[in-house]
Design a protein around this nucleic acid. Structure first.
Length: 255
DNA sequence: ATGGCCTCGGTTCGAGGA
């Protein structure tokens, strides 16, 4: 069982990449963020033709999330039921006995800004909701673009990024609170090479210079963490023409 | 050198992303 997450930065632009990647990497579940499509524009046909069922929740211009699955999706929920949010950032479904939550955490823009305060409120509400969700669904996976680099090891230049958005103490504390639910960062369940990231700025040849951040994560409840045998970041699509600035993260679970 | 790039909406620039 393979679960993956990928911020595609416009599914309209990146659909060929998604289909190409799935052909080479046929995961069971793929969570997408920043689809940037209203639901009437979602490319259902192309995704079904690739062998995936799909659930999605979009809006115009910004945000938008989707879950692609080789197995049936049930108990679909859009957004956090406890957080009134016009922005479409969460979609949840039960797939093969796993509660799969696909999340696009707000960026926060600038520490101290209104958007940053919204990000912290949003994360607190997420944590509150998941605390109860875990009681109903012990097999729970939270996949997505967290817009948080949890540790300095997840940052190419921790000095430059110190106290900046994505790296601030309050954001990292919110990430740790999710981990204390408890949920396990699948990537850190295993020894990993240094300087592995999931996002690189489009500017300054950041990808070529590997000036990135690890901000896309797969958090697993304890029963799933015990089943997890691998977690990898696949940099391949970041090398393609007209790439997303993010690249997929994949967790492999044994039956 | 206090920006550099990409996407969208809607026009050829501004907002937002991270």
């Amino acid at each position: 069982m393979k679960l993956a997450t990928w911020n595609v930065n416009s599914l309209k632009v990146r659909l060929p990449h998604v289909l190409q990647w799935l052909e080479a990497s046929p995961v069971d579940v793929l969570c997408l963020q920043e689809t940037k499509l209203t639901d009437d524009k979602f490319p259902i046909g192309e995704i079904q033709a690739a062998g995936y069922q799909v659930a999605f929740s979009g809006q115009k211009t910004y945000n938008g999330v989707a879950i692609l699955s080789r197995h049936p999706l049930s108990e679909l929920v859009k957004n956090n039921p406890r957080f009134d949010d016009e922005q479409q950032r969460i979609i949840t479904a039960t797939i093969a006995g796993i509660r799969v939550i696909c999340a696009y955490v707000p960026n926060g823009q600038l520490v101290g800004s209104d958007k940053y305060e919204y990000k912290l409120r949003w994360l607190e509400a997420l944590q509150g909701w998941l605390r109860d969700e875990l009681k109903n669904y012990p097999n729970l996976a939270l996949l997505g673009d967290y817009n948080i680099a949890p540790e300095d090891a997840d940052v190419h230049d921790p000095v430059a990024w110190k106290d900046q958005v994505l790296c601030s103490d309050a954001e990292r504390a919110a990430f740790r609170q999710l981990c204390e639910l408890p949920l396990k960062d699948a990537f850190r369940l295993f020894p990993q090479a240094d300087k592995l990231y999931s996002w690189w700025d489009y500017r300054q040849m950041a990808f070529r210079r590997n000036r990135g951040l690890r901000i896309d994560h797969i958090l697993l409840s304890l029963p799933l963490a015990e089943r997890c045998i691998a977690c990898e970041i696949d940099k391949t699509p970041r090398k393609w023409e007209q790439p997303s600035d993010h690249t997929p993260v994949i967790a492999t679970l044994k039956p």
